[in-house]
Design a protein around this nucleic acid. Sequence first.
DNA 1: CGGTCACTTGATCGTCTTCAATACCAGTGG
DNA 2: CCACTGGTATTGAAGACGATCAAGTGACCG
Lengths: 246, 246
Amino acid sequence: MNAVMDFPIVLAPLGMLRPCATCVVRRTSVCDAIPEADLARLGATAIGGIARPGTQFIADADPATSFFNIISGTARMYKLLPDGRRQITGFANGGNFLGLAVSDTYAFSAEAIDTVRYCRFPRVRLRMLMRDFPRMEERLLKFASTELVAAQEQMLLLGRKSARERVASFLLARSRLVPAGQRSPVHFVLPMARGDIADYLGITIETVVRTLKKLRDERIIEVTNTSEIEICDQAALRCLANGSHP
Amino acid sequence: MNAVMDFPIVLAPLGMLRPCATCVVRRTSVCDAIPEADLARLGATAIGGIARPGTQFIADADPATSFFNIISGTARMYKLLPDGRRQITGFANGGNFLGLAVSDTYAFSAEAIDTVRYCRFPRVRLRMLMRDFPRMEERLLKFASTELVAAQEQMLLLGRKSARERVASFLLARSRLVPAGQRSPVHFVLPMARGDIADYLGITIETVVRTLKKLRDERIIEVTNTSEIEICDQAALRCLANGSHP
DNA sequence: CGGTCACTTGATCGTCTTCAATACCAGTGG
DNA sequence: CCACTGGTATTGAAGACGATCAAGTGACCG
């Protein structure tokens, strides 16, 4: 029952002495605010951890004792209604920061989709870090702003877009995660299941499936193995995504 | 065509010399981060302004040159689709802070609903203020986090709640803005029109009207003058809002 | 193989949208 | 004072989109 495991970061993942120095997401995460010289202190502040697929590592309404910096893997953040209806508010990848809370409790839950490796920052220690490195706070503010912009875009999607437009928007957003350079056709893997996509887009699994099938029939995308997507007609998808054209 | 007007804050609103000192929202806004002794500098940084009803004062995709601190009135923030569909992402009241942007351009628009008085902070000057007063950045981060939590709640509403649940949630949220102390029945005025409510809740005007009528018929709320709401059965509304009970 | 689980597909149903008409209210000018 | 006007709100009837229900498929695994 202990699928979520913490361990001293100095031992993880391969017993390296200066794990932060070689961290693949350091330069793209909030940790970029800490100068090279202070990486030891950063390493002493963070606690490495792993969440196995399906494991919840942040629980709505629980005391917000820690912040999480995702290293690798994909997590889903979500909120539930009492009767079980679920809204996924976002997916977190390597470099993302989780756990910003207003009050002393989390306002959402988070689960690992595949295996998620993360660094956990106890709240108090992160606060000290922010005090000593104002750039850290700056970085967090920038991150929160980014999240806010994404959330507003998602509200537009949830409130005003048709199922077809939602799926198109989702595929486009996912395609933007692919490192630039690879040219058309863009190709990527969806780490999440159909149910996750449905709960993220505010529709049902069946509608996700049917819409994907339709897009495939129209030669706008290609779907293989249910989780691999290839975007054949990016222009068409872009039009669909914002309703420019039926 | 100049319904949005700026003027030196030292002249506003009554020619006071230290306007920040008497600002009614100072203690509840980001300005609370600035110590009394430095209010003069704060006043020199901000530029007072007024937006008349219906006037847009932040335009999506425009260069994000300023941040806004709302003093009084209510504004709507929104995003549009090319064909005119609108999603209102939030309403801003006195004490709220607007304009957080990732890139150099705004990611949303904002319009005054009634007459809105605000303080405008040119981006560069605010940055200097944040540098000299780290508490300012801390305050902004807290504000952004609050917005983020609200956005997640709204995503749950837009993605997974029925029209009835949306309206109930909206009325409850509005009732929470009423200063505590007044007890049941809670009574308040909606500054926004039906169309704004509809575009905020991701439904149509007609559905808003019909749902309000139904709630009124069921003696859960009372509606007078189309803009005054009285909550008669708060418990029932709370149940409705999260779908605990049909 | 029999089990589970995720995905897919089809048929029916219901909520909310759309379209259209009417009511209401404040402001304006005869 | 009162008809006129524009905007918002309300109400009714018809239709559509997506949800729900139900069944079937395929992959993986003990």
